[in-house]
Amino acid sequence: MTNASDSSSGGFEYRGGSGNPDGVGSLTRHQAVLIDEVIADGHAPTLSFFVRNDDKTRIYEAIAGDTVIAGLTYNFASDNRLVLVATAVFPAYRKQGIASELIRRVLNEVRTQGKTVSIMCPIVWAFIERNPEYADLVDPKHPGMPRGAHRS
């Protein structure tokens, strides 16, 4: 499998700023672009892809053909809960509805599995604010970073 690459994005690593567990800092340029995309998104993705859960690396990967185009990293919590850490879309695939559709598919799978989520990713929070039908999946005891923390 090949991966799209962008040396300035750091792949799927979460690089400082708002969205880190302490919630301190400002959004990265990459986060801001994806939040704007998620907020403005009202259409189906322009590219066909499937989502694979790589539970070894803890990444839900969006794959088009044989290329990973986006990912949503997560951790397991001991109480039937996923902690959604970071969403990334490689630059060549942005503004195509990929982030929204990836998040939607991951949250649908979480719902099917009867799990809840804690959100450390400001992009996922922006998605849920735009799509409140997913708000019930946020664990009330452990919601993650403060809701709205993506607004800076």
Rank of each mutant, 00 (worst) to 15 (best):
L72P: 09
S152P: 06
R52F: 03
D54G: 07
G71E: 03
N108A: 09
D139F: 00
D139K: 02
V106Y: 08
R147C: 13
Y60A: 05
A44R: 08
V124R: 05
V83H: 09
S48F: 11
R105K: 06
Y134D: 11
R151W: 09
D41A: 12
D54N: 12
N3A: 08
A77R: 14
L27C: 13
F50G: 15
S48Q: 14
R15K: 15
Y14E: 04
S9I: 05
I39E: 05
I103T: 01
V33T: 09
M120A: 15
I98F: 03
A149L: 10
I59M: 00
E37F: 04
T116P: 06
V89C: 03
V68M: 12
P45W: 06
T57Y: 12
A4G: 05
V124D: 02
V89R: 03
G148T: 06
H142Q: 02
I39L: 11
N75G: 13
I128E: 02
V51L: 05
I103A: 00
Y74V: 01
Q31T: 13
G114W: 02
P21T: 14
I39G: 06
S7D: 12
A99R: 00
L82S: 01
G144M: 02
R94W: 04
H30I: 08
F12P: 01
D136P: 06
C121Y: 07
P140T: 08
I69A: 06
S18F: 14
D54H: 09
L82T: 02
I35S: 04
A44P: 05
S9F: 07
V83P: 05
P91S: 14
K56E: 14
V138A: 01
Y134E: 13
D139L: 02
N108F: 00
F50R: 15
P122D: 12
G10R: 04
A70Y: 04
I123L: 07
V33C: 11
N3F: 11
P140F: 03
T116W: 02
N20P: 11
A64N: 05
R130D: 08
H150V: 12
G65A: 04
A44T: 08
T2H: 11
F49W: 13
M120V: 10
S152K: 09
S9E: 08
S118Q: 07
D55H: 13
Q31V: 12
E133H: 10
A88C: 00
A86R: 10
R15P: 08
T116I: 07
G11N: 10
V138S: 02
D55G: 09
S48W: 07
T73R: 09
A70K: 05
K56C: 11
G148K: 04
A32G: 13
A40C: 04
A62F: 04
N108K: 06
I123Y: 10
A86P: 03
E37L: 00
N75V: 06
D136H: 03
N53H: 13
D36R: 14
